[in-house]
């Protein structure tokens, strides 16, 4: 009974809205922009007929995948270093890791304008050192989007890998070494496979976060950097084309569910949820 209000909240505010989106995607938007509750396939036809939408969806998938890959490559050594640290120092380092994620997301993203912009910190330093004459184009392109995306998602990756590494029994690594495995070999054969569930959970979380934010491209992207989540926002808020926005959102949910399903089959759904919620 005590859980009922909370369950009600989730059902009413998370699950039913998905239904609302599905319904809207089949409704008609009249020439005046008013939504009429009448069955039509107009929005779905527009989505399927115009290759633009699928192209952007593919581009977004690539963005999320590359962001995930960078996070994994950068995050793993960091998480591994955290494991090696003495306890007291490690607590401080984990606190510092979390510190930026408390800070307003918009401010964190906007700070890159001052770092990467033509008059920003990086160009200023490079020019003072005489490395470059003209400012490098670091802002409003793919580069700044990746910098911002990784900046936003990296913490979740490090944390999940760290939790995964924590559950690795160090005795097993020592045993492998005693049995003759060299440093790298022991790592590749014992530590890495055992920490894989954490890496998988972190990857899933980063992929979903990267695919779902339109704020980072909005602030750090140029005119050419349109991603799927931006299309949804554009359709729903400035254009007020709710049926189209709903169609795009339903496709997004289906794709993400497929990704999660694929992951769950690979990693086991139990581990995944335990890790993500840990």
């Amino acid at each position: 009974m005590l859980a009922a209000p909370a369950v009600g909240c989730v059902v009413a505010f998370i699950l039913l809205p998905v239904l609302a989106m599905a319904l809207h995607s089949f409704w008609l938007r009249d020439p005046n922009g008013i939504v009429i509750q009448q069955f039509t396939l107009t929005s779905w036809r527009e989505f399927l007929d115009d290759p633009f939408y699928l192209e952007v969806l593919g581009r977004t998938g690539r963005l999320a995948a590359i962001t995930t890959l960078i996070c994994a490559l950068v995050g793993y050594p960091v998480a591994y270093t955290l494991i090696l640290m003495p306890d007291r120092f490690r607590a401080l380092m984990i606190l510092l890791l979390f510190l930026p994620s408390w800070i307003s997301f918009v401010v964190r993203t906007m700070s890159w304008l001052h770092v990467l912009g033509p008059g920003g910190l990086v160009n200023l330093l490079l020019r003072r050192m005489g490395v470059i004459e003209e400012p490098l184009p670091l802002l409003y392109n793919d580069f700044s989007i990746y910098v911002g995306m990784v900046h936003y998602t990296l913490t979740y990756m490090v944390l999940n890998i760290y939790i995964g590494l924590q559950s690795v029994d160090r005795n097993l690594v020592d045993a492998a070494r005693t049995l003759g495995a060299k440093g790298w070999h022991a790592f590749l054969e014992v530590t890495l496979p055992l920490s894989l569930p954490g890496l998988m959970a972190g990857s899933l979380l980063v992929f979903i976060l990267a695919a779902g934010t339109y704020i980072t491209p909005l602030i750090l992207g140029g005119t050419g950097n349109v991603y799927y989540s931006n299309l949804i926002y554009e359709a729903v808020i400035p254009q007020l084309d709710w049926p189209l926005g709903a169609t795009l959102a339903v496709v997004f949910i289906v794709v993400l569910t497929a990704v999660i399903g694929l992951y769950a089959r690979l990693a086991g759904v139990g581990t995944l949820f335990r890790k993500v919620s840990a």
Partner: peptide, 22 residues
């Protein structure tokens, strides 16, 4: 069910709840 919302992008919750209200 209670943990699941963590995995749902805010974008989806945003659009969905707005349309449900409409």
């Amino acid at each position: 069910l209670l943990t699941m919302p963590i995995l749902v992008p805010h974008l989806i919750v945003g659009v969905g709840l707005l349309l449900a209200f409409r």
